[in-house]
Amino acid sequence: MASLNVYSVLVVLFLTCGAVMATKENDQIIKENNCETKMGFRYVLEAFTSIFETASISNMCCSELVVLGKGCHSALVKRTLGNPLFKDLSPATITAKSIQTWNNCLALIDSPSPSA
């Protein structure tokens, strides 16, 4: 539970302050597409822990992530990786987890719902 609180603080810090080392391209994508306001905080935290930790992602969060869009998703992940707080993480591993999360959510949203 303490780990979740630490990540909550980090996500709030990330969303309010932004990453100091962000590239102009990612910042421009994020700003032009209002990426930081398209998902509710609960889903931002869930997606974040799914990518940067080992947590599962709910169907509702997947729906929110797909609505956010791949461009926003990628730019936000890249900006997070540029944050000095995450300098010890492997960019290749995080990028792979980010792509896997995106593809899993996209497949889930695109698959037909079972009839009731």
Rank of each mutant, 00 (worst) to 15 (best):
A19F: 04
V20Q: 06
A22Y: 01
A22W: 00
A22M: 04
T23R: 15
T23F: 09
K24M: 12
K24S: 07
E25S: 15
E25V: 13
E25G: 12
N26Q: 06
D27W: 07
Q28F: 02
I30Y: 03
I30L: 09
E32M: 10
N33C: 04
N33G: 08
N34P: 00
N34G: 06
C35V: 05
C35M: 11
E36Q: 12
E36F: 15
T37W: 03
G40C: 09
G40Q: 07
G40M: 13
R42E: 11
R42S: 09
R42C: 08
Y43F: 14
Y43V: 02
Y43S: 13
V44Q: 14
V44P: 05
E46W: 13
A47G: 01
T49Y: 09
T49N: 11
T49A: 03
T49E: 14
S50Q: 09
F52C: 01
T54K: 09
A55V: 00
S56V: 09
I57E: 06
I57A: 11
I57R: 12
S58H: 02
S58R: 02
C61S: 09
C62Q: 02
C62Y: 02
S63G: 05
S63V: 03
S63Q: 10
E64L: 03
E64Q: 12
L65D: 03
L65H: 04
V66K: 11
V66D: 06
V66T: 06
L68F: 13
G69L: 13
K70G: 00
K70S: 00
G71N: 05
C72L: 11
C72S: 13
C72A: 12
C72G: 07
H73T: 10
H73Q: 04
S74F: 03
S74E: 09
S74W: 05
A75T: 02
A75K: 01
L76V: 13
L76F: 03
V77H: 02
K78R: 04
K78T: 05
R79E: 14
T80M: 11
L81P: 01
L81R: 11
L81G: 01
G82A: 12
G82P: 04
G82R: 14
N83K: 08
P84V: 08
P84D: 11
L85K: 08
L85T: 04
F86E: 01
D88K: 11
P91K: 08
P91N: 07
A92Y: 08
A92V: 09
A92C: 03
A92Q: 09
T95V: 15
T95D: 15
A96D: 08
A96S: 11
K97H: 14
K97I: 00
I99S: 10
I99D: 07
I99Q: 07
T101I: 02
T101R: 05
W102D: 03
W102H: 00
W102L: 01
W102M: 01
N103S: 04
N103R: 10
N103E: 15
N104E: 07
C105L: 11
L106I: 01
L106M: 00
A107L: 13
A107W: 11
A107T: 15
L108V: 10
I109Y: 06
I109W: 03
D110I: 05
D110C: 12
D110A: 14
D110M: 12
D110Q: 13
P112Y: 10
P112T: 04
P112W: 03
P112A: 12
S113T: 14
S113H: 14
P114R: 15
P114N: 12
